[in-house]
C-alpha cells in the first residue's frame, strides 16, 4: 500500500472534521477552477490471447485486452470541499468476453459496484486486497452480485476461473479524481483556489506515482497539467 494512500485517508478524516457547513462549501465552489490535461501512456498494449495453456484441446476465444493506457488522475491531498458532500452512487463492472469491463474503475468510498455476468460461462469474481476482500462465488449469465467499497485504497479484482481476467478499482475518500478517456484526457472540476499536488495512477507504474504541483488561481479558471508515462 503506497504511503500516499495512508496520508490521503488521514488527511481526509482531519479535513472532514473541520469542514464548514453546506453554505461555506457553496461559497468556495463559486470561485472554483478546473484542472485538465492529458496523460500520455507509452506502453505496449496487452495481448488479447488468454494465458497459454498446453492442456487446452484447441484455441480459446480471445478476450478484450486490458487497456493499460487508462489512468486515474487525483488530487493528493484533496481540498476541504472534497468532504462536504457524501455520495453513495452505484457503479458497474461487467464480465464480458472473459474480461472485466471497464478494466479500471475509480469510485468514491461508499459506492456499491455491481458485477453482472454477461458471458455464457461461469465467473467467480474475487479480491484479496486489503482495502476490500471479497469472493462472489460462481454465478451464471444474467446474474449480478454487488459489493460495497467503504475503505479507500486499491482493489485488485480477479476471476478464480479465468486467470487472464483482472481489473482495478481505485476507491477514494474524496471526489477529486477523474478517469482518463480514450485519448488520455481528463478534467477535474470544481477545484477551489489553492496549490495542489496532482498525481496519476496507472497500472504500469510501479513505485511512486507521477506527480506535479498545480495552482488554481483565486479567480478560478482552467489549469493544464499533462503527464507522460513510459
Amino acid at each position: 500500500m503506497p504511503t500516499a494512500w495512508v496520508t490521503l485517508v488521514l488527511v481526509a478524516f482531519v479535513l472532514a472534521g473541520s469542514a464548514g457547513g453546506v453554505n461555506a462549501a457553496r461559497d468556495r465552489m463559486a470561485l472554483s477552477g478546473a484542472i485538465r490535461g492529458r496523460v500520455d501512456v507509452r506502453v505496449a498494449q496487452a495481448s488479447a490471447d488468454r494465458r497459454p495453456d498446453v492442456g487446452a484441446l484447441g484455441i480459446s476465444p480471445s478476450h478484450i485486452p486490458p487497456d493499460r493506457r487508462r489512468s486515474v488522475v487525483y488530487l493528493d491531498p484533496a481540498p476541504r470541499a472534497a468532504f462536504d458532500t457524501r455520495e453513495e452512487p452505484r457503479k458497474r463492472m461487467d464480465q464480458r468476453n472473459e474480461s472485466f469491463v471497464p478494466h479500471l474503475l475509480a469510485i468514491v468510498a461508499g459506492t456499491t459496484v455491481d458485477f453482472p455476468n454477461n458471458d455464457e460461462t461461469y465467473h467467480n469474481v474475487f479480491s484479496l486486497s486489503r482495502a476490500k476482500s471479497f469472493d462472489l462465488g460462481r454465478y451464471a449469465a444474467g446474474k449480478s452480485r454487488p459489493v460495497r467499497f467503504d475503505r479507500p485504497g486499491i482493489v485488485r479484482v480477479f476471476c478464480d476461473i479465468h486467470s487472464h481476467m483482472s481489473a482495478f478499482i481505485l476507491v477514494f475518500a474524496h471526489r477529486y479524481f477523474a478517469e482518463t478517456d480514450d485519448d488520455g484526457r481528463y478534467r477535474l472540476d470544481n477545484v477551489p483556489p489553492g496549490t495542489y499536488t496532482v498525481a496519476v495512477w496507472n497500472e504500469t507504474v510501479h513505485g511512486d506515482p507521477p506527480k506535479r504541483a498545480v495552482t488554481v488561481p483565486d479567480g478560478g479558471g482552467d489549469v493544464d497539467a499533462d503527464f507522460t508515462i513510459r
Binding site: A46, S47, R51, P52, S129, S166
Partner: peptide
C-alpha cells in the same frame, strides 16, 4: 506477502 506484489501475467515478446 499478502499484497499482490508478484507478477501474475505472462511475459510477452514481439507484441504478444
Amino acid at each position: 506477502l499478502f499484497a499482490q506484489a508478484l507478477p501474475s501475467g505472462p511475459v510477452e515478446l514481439g507484441d504478444g
